[in-house]
Design a protein around this nucleic acid. Structure first.
Lengths: 129, 129
DNA sequence: CCGGATCCTCCTGGATACTG
DNA sequence: CAGTATCCAGGAGGATCCGG
């Protein structure tokens, strides 16, 4: 069974914050965040997710959805018809996590210009060395 | 110049949230978060960081510190003595980002048992299939 | 003590083809 | 439509050696 192992994070220090580490594993993934974001707009089918995210491969979309489902962040509802219909939606847990990601997004909007400024400065410096 | 390219995230949908994507690139990294966390306890030297994180390679520690410095999240202070002394500390920007990570940590402490319960349930189900 | 440069391995993830 | 199975390249990251 192809359950690809997640990045194994084992930090001496962070073991004091046992759950931070694991929660980061939850969301520190490009596609997982994309799926969470799209689903925050409501229930979507597999094909819709694929289209809206755009450049995700089937393999990664499926894998991300399985992970999210396993972690209780996303609901998967299968309608036994042909052709098959499968609907994905956020669980309450998923929605609450999305709220936290939103606060990260807020930080971005307020502070990312500072990050870019720092980058420019750093790159300019190291260019002259 | 060995600037290894970061994961290139280009999402049709997430382009609406231009900075969320980039901020995630900032912190969606195992070691970067570890460094941020250790530095939240105050100024540290290179060797201290290495010891406290424990299982980080020199290569990755250096790389993470360079990235953090470039992004304006960490200060690097070199004392021109022999043997060399280098001190790392959070910038105000880094501290504010740490605050957001803290809220992620809070979410963990409140909700991670639910995640684990979902995992158990999922694994038990799929085991019987 | 603080790293830079290199080598080398393994894993991630895209492409493709195929099913119920 | 909604996936699964397989193959494969590219890059991340650890180990190691070296240098100021």
């Amino acid at each position: 069974m192809s359950r690809e192992s997640k990045v194994n994070i084992s930090l001496n220090v962070l073991d004091n914050h046992p759950f931070l580490r694991q929660t980061l594993e939850l969301v520190a993934d490009k596609w997982v965040v994309a799926v969470l974001y799209v689903l925050s707009n409501g229930t979507k089918r597999y094909g819709e997710l694929q289209r809206e995210i755009g450049d995700i491969s089937q393999r990664m979309l499926t894998k991300s959805l399985r992970d999210l489902e396993r972690n209780g962040l996303v609901n998967r509802k299968v309608y036994p018809v042909v052709p098959p219909v499968v609907e994905y939606s956020l669980t309450p847990l998923g929605e609450s996590l999305n709220g936290v990601l939103k606060s990260l997004c807020d930080w971005s909007n307020q502070n990312f210009d500072a990050v870019e400024a720092a980058r420019d400065k750093y790159d300019k410096q190291t260019l002259c060395s």
